[in-house]
Design a protein around this nucleic acid. Sequence first.
DNA 1: ATGAGTAGGTAGACTGGTCTATCTACTCAT
DNA 2: ATGAGTAGATAGACCAGTCTACCTACTCAT
Lengths: 200, 200
Amino acid sequence: MTSKKTAPANTASRRPARDALLEAAARRFYAFGLTGTGIDTITAEAGVAKKSLYNNFASKADLVTAYLYARHEEWLGLYRARLEKATNPKDRVLAVFDAYADHADLAYEHGFRGCGLLNAAAELPAGDPGREVVRKHKEDVEALLAEHLAGLLPDPADQAALARHLAFLLEGSMVRAGLDGDDNCVREARSIAATLIGAL
Amino acid sequence: MTSKKTAPANTASRRPARDALLEAAARRFYAFGLTGTGIDTITAEAGVAKKSLYNNFASKADLVTAYLYARHEEWLGLYRARLEKATNPKDRVLAVFDAYADHADLAYEHGFRGCGLLNAAAELPAGDPGREVVRKHKEDVEALLAEHLAGLLPDPADQAALARHLAFLLEGSMVRAGLDGDDNCVREARSIAATLIGAL
DNA sequence: ATGAGTAGGTAGACTGGTCTATCTACTCAT
DNA sequence: ATGAGTAGATAGACCAGTCTACCTACTCAT
């Protein structure tokens, strides 16, 4: 009775090349930059044929875009996990800061270098569509802050203003954390944010 | 007689290759990144022989380091000009923000892309000495803030804490400004900072 | 159940071009 | 005649991307 798929075992044994590629690309792109990482390095690290890269992605630029989206999703996963544990508006705001710290704490075998999306954007020239993806991500994060602030501040203008303040604070701390190679700055920013919200 | 130098006209007409190189490198590195800019592009834009590059700099990495220091100095110049016009501690703090906005307003023929030092650091791998130069610059900026805050806050611990808060705010706004392509975020951060200081 | 087709994988040669860096040979002002 | 510049050839590594040739697992019609 072949109506039941025996496939799962097989598909598991041969891991889709796309996943291996994306994972290797993420590691290398984060650690050594977009331009600093060659196609051959990625296929070698993924243990995959070069043909497989071009079967799954139209070009290196396409792989870069996929990396950008994957990193955004990765952060969202971290954030959602933190959000579940938050029981009040204040903790939900701080969950955004926690997710950033969590992202910084992921085991980076070649060292922590700050926000991967920002680092990627830094390599892209002014009009590049990839920069737009990153801009969007940062706006999403700010919107999340504003949303949770709605539970603490009645006036939408106040919500937006404080969300912006917190977004700048968080972003700046992440930059400095990347330069330091650890997440201390982000934790400091979290506590500044907590004070700011606590005063409401 | 040749005792009187006719040189000035000559030295002016034949501008030192080093300066032309540094200027071209600054433009290209900022707009297209460190790795994204080749040596040939730089010498061509500088209108200089390749040999002249290697007469004046040991390697491309050496040129990158010179670029990093030059950018730091450029910002310092902008800051000092703003500082001269400030007559009280509050305005001196805000002069730091103004200098960032001024840096953003320099005519970038290929578009504004945020802090050049940060963008450069984003391309350098974790242990690279260039990252240390950038880290140092950001710490200097924070120290400047703390220094001016001393005229507003008696407790050194309070000065340091607020300096950090303002430094994160400023840095984060610069990042977002770079993503947007204009300096609006930095101006917003300045006004948030003004409110924060005004409340003292 | 078998056998052909299909989808997606492997290894690696190859093209055309770019990268950093070195080097030769010439010019010119002091 | 020396030092700093010019133009440009050259070396050797590396780049993105294409391509041939082969392999393996799964699907499905017979």
